[in-house]
Design a protein around this nucleic acid. Structure first.
Lengths: 129, 129
DNA sequence: TACGACTGTAACCGCAATAGTTACACTAAG
DNA sequence: CTTAGTGTAACTATTGCGGTTACAGTCGTA
């Protein structure tokens, strides 16, 4: 994996590449690191994947940057009137459905790897013009 | 459908029931109306479903209040560097996958009706204590 | 061992989205 | 025509987040 011979991949370079600030990149990198997807060299820079791109799914990334808490893609009104029949039970009534919906979405992400995405990008490029 | 004999369902009542402001309710009702899900009596109040609860899916509601544009549950970085291979193509490369993920989620919502939800709520209530 | 390059993170600003609120014109049932 | 309720504009407050600055921590390297 480690591309030492390649050019050094610092947060600064990445930030420049997507028109943003290095700190934003480092924050994201921190999440990816916490999730064990990347390894970061503190001193003389450089970030590397800890696994083969074919072994990392979009769900891994999605979870890592926690677009949404493990819990709930959908969040439900959290201050219902206890006196209300609906307020008391709607959360539970909706819960399994919403959870299933979220899972269905995540399973699609789980089925696509970084490898596939990069391959796709290159394919796109060849089809240009 | 019309429950004339029942108590009048004004935005004020609904707001009180969920601890919010009548205007917030009216805004939501406006979206549901635009989607053709409800009918609202302008003068002496009252809101009614235009279809049987069994004929309204959670997806209908979800779409009506447009939690997310028809287009994209996921939005991708929109100002890529044209000079960058990845920037140029990642959107297209990810597009079909993300669309499939969103559709998978929506299909689950499409499979559940308001009827089922209300039934579920009542069931929950009976299981209490 | 000291230097320099880079990461990790706190702190702050600014912007956008949205709930909440007030106000008021519009509508229709009685 | 009166009155209760809707439709909507306008404003405020709050929240979340990208962007930015600043600086301490880390570690290859001379």
């Amino acid at each position: 994996m480690q591309q030492e011979d390649d050019v050094l991949l610092t947060s600064e370079r990445m930030a420049g590449s997507v028109n943003t600030n290095p700190v934003v990149i480092r924050r994201l990198l921190g999440q990816l690191k916490k999730a064990g997807l990347v390894e970061v060299r503190p001193a003389s820079g450089g970030t590397f994947l800890t696994r083969q791109p074919a072994a990392i799914s979009l769900l891994d990334v999605y979870r890592a940057v926690e677009v949404v808490e493990e819990g709930q893609l959908f969040s439900v009104h959290d201050k219902p009137l206890p006196a209300c029949l609906v307020g008391r039970n709607i959360q539970a009534a909706l819960d399994t459905t919403l959870r299933r919906a979220q899972t269905a979405m995540e399973q699609v992400l789980a089925g696509v790897t970084l490898q596939q995405v990069t391959t796709e990008i290159l394919t796109q490029e060849n089809l240009k013009d």
